[in-house]
Nucleic acid binder design. Sequence first.
DNA 1: ATCTATTTGTACGTATGTATT
DNA 2: AAATACATACGTACAAATAGA
Lengths: 257, 257
Amino acid sequence: MISLPPATTQFKGDPRLSRPVQVAEAIKDWVVEQGLHAGDRLPSEPELIERFSMAKGTIREAMRILEAQGLIKTRTGPGGGSFVHEVSKERARALLGNYFYFKNLTIADIYQLRRALEPELAASLAGNLSDEVLGQLEDRIATYSSPAKTVDEEREQHVGSLKFHALLAAQSENELMGFLIDFMVNILSDLTVYRRLYNPPNIELWGKGRDFQVRLVEALRSGDADGARQIMSDHMATAQSLMEVQEAQMLRRFISE
Amino acid sequence: MISLPPATTQFKGDPRLSRPVQVAEAIKDWVVEQGLHAGDRLPSEPELIERFSMAKGTIREAMRILEAQGLIKTRTGPGGGSFVHEVSKERARALLGNYFYFKNLTIADIYQLRRALEPELAASLAGNLSDEVLGQLEDRIATYSSPAKTVDEEREQHVGSLKFHALLAAQSENELMGFLIDFMVNILSDLTVYRRLYNPPNIELWGKGRDFQVRLVEALRSGDADGARQIMSDHMATAQSLMEVQEAQMLRRFISE
DNA sequence: ATCTATTTGTACGTATGTATT
DNA sequence: AAATACATACGTACAAATAGA
């Protein structure tokens, strides 16, 4: 059984903040203090009303704040309530995407990072992937093994090849690196799907892209870290040159989960 | 004058989502459609109640969601209301930090990224910094020019030297790169300040750190991109070896703005 | 399949706080 | 100083969802 919220005394938060924000912050602190984990139950609405001596609406606004940040999930019904929730990758992606909505990131910006990071990722994964994952990578490559005939098909293949990189990113033991590459890949994928980016396609060069990925899986399987790094590095350079002919400005919408 | 919210018809959102979330999403979409910018005013509370045919509480919860994501700010009083707000770096940092709270990132993870990115940053800034910024960098170095005598002083100097990197990050034309380095530097800074990390200090090696930074500013001023990259690369390697003797697990609290 | 208990979700009216003019 | 235009907070009543008997 989880003991009641913060203290037994009258709650007093930072008066510069609105009350819902004060409550939300207090609950966050309390979760950390109590060492709660994902799945653990927070006090019920009436309990929180009682503890903070605030109205139902105020408490509910606080819960919506925590929910918006991805830190809790709420269910109705018996056994329901609010539960600590591990912030999902999708939510984190969307929230970070909001920041860049106002920034105008360019494709060049993204590729500057991809060129710095993905070769490192490839090197650190060499020799560390299971046969299952290596198989999944090969399956992905197979889905775009034959040259695209239409622009739509080409677009679909491009999104598919980005999934190859997302799959690699998900294997990283470095969560920060993994998240970041996934984030960038998703932005590029969004651009390809939702906008008229990525035409005219350059069939010849994208063919090289497939080739790169085949050789990369080879190097990853054999544990050749330096080779994997080099192949990825070349691959990034090629992809960049293909993308950079496209429009520079991006993110004209909020990313959703 | 801004016309009313979404459409003139009865609002109908995704029924799988709670109503406040539906409203928040609808408002986001509407902001994008209308091409609203930071500072633009959203419809007043009564207007939104009218438009969505929902109760005040529901609308208010929706506004708290948008506020928690950093997308709006709300003011009371005449001329008050809710306004589109550019998501601040601090907010984005905190929201992304929540994601990693559950992940246990290690110092090694962070340095793997720093080693890949900061040399690139240094190279891209070489020859592109104003005298004013170069002066600020030198001022920073000056604050820890004399060796620290106590552990507390050493800690303070470490935080100061991290600010050097944050200052560099802020100069990047690549917002993604700048944000990311700033994010990592802030995590390391938090660790140094709030926890017992970073003892025993290694005075000799940190002395080298100062040296690196002096040489780096030199290279940045003279426009020597390759030199700057190399110096930063060496600097990162040294710093990593100093940090890695520390405990590996991090982020035992939620990052606040 | 229905009922019942539990817990959140929505509605609405009123009063209070706050900043502008 | 007073009036005005906003958001903020409170409290109650009722609706909807879900789990279990």
